[in-house]
Simulated scan of single mutants.
Amino acid sequence: MHPEILAQEGYSSVHVDDCPVREVFPGIRLRLLWKAQSGAQAAVLEMDAGTSWPRRDIHAPGPEEVYVLTGTFHDGARDYPAGTFLHAPAGSWHVPATAGGCTLFLFYPEG
């Protein structure tokens, strides 16, 4: 490891297992990984098998970027297997669900 990397201001790291878990809906948990002063943030969302968002997930004020880490994510219209990247522009919406369970990496570039 290069010591000069660690000395850079703002450079940080965290292990997902060390992040507090917040249940956002039954069987759906969020782990906040990072949040900037601007409001940008990164998180991991864990969805148990057979769970779904109880309403539309509207992307506001900015976009949402999703990478499916494990399982299969369903957006209300189609399935996305592990390894899929999705970009949802500001103002768009979906109804997150999963039949078999999934884990997602979420990034919100705007606050």
Rank of each mutant, 00 (worst) to 15 (best):
H2K: 03
A7E: 12
Q8K: 14
Q8W: 05
Q8P: 10
G10V: 00
S12F: 07
S12Y: 08
H15Q: 15
H15G: 11
D18I: 06
C19F: 04
C19Y: 08
V21F: 02
R22K: 08
E23Q: 05
E23G: 01
V24H: 09
F25A: 15
F25T: 13
F25P: 02
G27Y: 05
I28P: 07
R29E: 09
L30G: 09
L30E: 13
L30W: 09
L33C: 11
K35N: 10
K35H: 08
S38P: 11
G39F: 10
G39M: 06
A42G: 12
A42W: 01
L45D: 11
E46S: 05
E46H: 07
M47I: 13
D48F: 00
T51H: 02
R55L: 14
R56E: 15
D57N: 14
P61S: 12
P61G: 05
P61Q: 10
G62A: 11
G62Y: 06
P63T: 09
P63W: 01
P63G: 12
E64C: 07
E65R: 07
E65P: 06
E65C: 11
V66F: 00
V66W: 01
V66N: 00
Y67T: 00
V68M: 05
V68K: 01
V68Q: 01
T70N: 09
G71P: 07
G71C: 06
G71N: 03
G71M: 02
T72S: 08
T72L: 01
F73C: 02
D75V: 07
A77K: 07
A77Y: 10
R78S: 12
D79S: 05
D79L: 00
P81Q: 07
P81M: 06
A82K: 04
G83H: 00
G83W: 00
T84P: 03
F85H: 14
L86S: 02
L86C: 03
H87Y: 11
P89V: 00
A90P: 04
A90N: 12
A90V: 08
A90M: 06
G91Y: 07
G91I: 08
S92R: 03
S92G: 10
W93T: 02
W93C: 02
W93D: 08
H94A: 05
H94I: 01
V95I: 15
P96W: 09
T98W: 07
A99H: 09
A99G: 14
A99I: 11
A99F: 02
G100D: 15
G101D: 09
G101A: 08
C102Y: 04
C102W: 06
T103K: 01
F107Y: 15
Y108V: 07
Y108Q: 12
Y108T: 12
P109Q: 03
P109F: 01
G111R: 02
G111Y: 06
